[in-house]
Simulated assay, not measured.
Amino acid sequence: MQAIKLFVLPLLATAIVMTGCASRKPVNVAEAGQNPSTSTTVNTEGLSEDAALNAQNLAGASSKGVTAANKAFLAKRVVHFDYDSSELSNDDIQTLQAHAQFLMANANSRVALTGHTDERGTREYNMALGERRAKAVESFLVTTGVNANQLEAVSYGKEMPINAGHDENAWKENRRVEINYEAVPPLLK
């Protein structure tokens, strides 16, 4: 019986911690500072929850803070990392500065920063690395002047690869933080 407790308790604790790292709550329009009565409404009947959220976000898109100079950088929604690193590269700084500028100009915008890793390493290690990556992006944005309440850092570790390959090219694509607008995304048209 003692051996079972020694095996089950750490396993259960790890499962609870890992589940908490990847859990996210949907953005409530009222909590996001938008007045539901004046928000643009979109018919989302028959759409999945994600598709409905995306449709509603596009209806509430903003061009405030979007300039000709930063439009290309705002279109980029992924920041990549080197192997076993959570350091931001110089290549991604302009992208993050453009998103910071937009977020500061649009207080109702909300962003989920989702950290990802490649398949190498344990699940626990990759969850922690994904979180460090998301927190590095969050820290940069806050240091630049973005309100921390507009940001949510989440780790998915190695659980959601965008390239299922098992080579350096696939791993390079999977080591990333995605910038996902959940409320008032940039209008890039």
Rank of each mutant, 00 (worst) to 15 (best):
G115A: 14
E87Q: 13
S85Q: 01
A98N: 11
H116W: 02
D91Y: 05
F81P: 00
L96G: 10
D118T: 09
A112V: 11
A98S: 10
T117F: 10
T95Y: 08
E119Y: 13
L88E: 09
A112S: 05
Q94T: 15
L96E: 11
R110K: 09
D82V: 05
D91T: 13
H116G: 12
Y83Q: 13
D82S: 05
H80C: 06
Q94G: 14
T114F: 03
F102Q: 03
S89C: 09
F81S: 03
S109Q: 06
S109I: 06
M104F: 00
N106C: 02
D91C: 10
R110G: 06
D82Y: 04
Y83E: 08
V111C: 05
A105S: 02
V111W: 01
T117W: 10
Y83I: 12
H99A: 05
T95S: 04
I93V: 14
Q94V: 11
S89R: 13
G115H: 15
Y83T: 12
N90E: 14
H116L: 10
T114D: 15
N108I: 11
I93P: 12
D92H: 07
A112R: 05
L88H: 06
T95R: 10
D82G: 09
S85D: 00
S85E: 01
T117N: 11
H116C: 11
L113C: 06
E87H: 15
Q101L: 05
L88A: 09
A100C: 09
Y83M: 06
H116P: 06
A112G: 03
N90C: 14
L113V: 01
S109K: 05
E119W: 12
A105L: 04
A107K: 07
Q97L: 13
S86M: 02
D84R: 11
L103F: 00
V111Q: 03
T114R: 11
L88K: 06
T114L: 10
A98P: 13
L88Q: 10
H116A: 13
H99D: 08
A112T: 12
N108Q: 04
A107L: 08
A107C: 12
D118H: 07
T117P: 11
S85I: 01
S109H: 01
N108W: 01
E119D: 12
T95V: 12
S86L: 04
H116D: 11
I93K: 14
G115I: 09
H99Y: 05
L103C: 00
Q94N: 14
D91E: 14
V111M: 02
Q94A: 12
N90H: 11
F81T: 00
E119S: 13
M104W: 04
L88F: 13
T117Q: 12
L96H: 08
G115W: 10
L103G: 00
A100N: 06
H80L: 15
G115M: 08
D92Y: 14
N90A: 15
H80I: 04
N106H: 02
A100Q: 04
H99I: 14
S86H: 03
S86T: 03
Y83A: 14
D118L: 04
F81W: 01
N106Y: 03
S85R: 02
F102K: 04
L113N: 03
A112Q: 07
A107E: 13
D92P: 09
L113A: 03
M104I: 13
A98V: 13
D84V: 03
F102L: 04
A105M: 03
L103V: 02
Q94D: 13
N106T: 00
F102Y: 08
S89H: 07
Q101A: 03
S86F: 00
S85V: 02
N90T: 15
M104E: 03
V111S: 00
E119G: 15
Q97S: 10
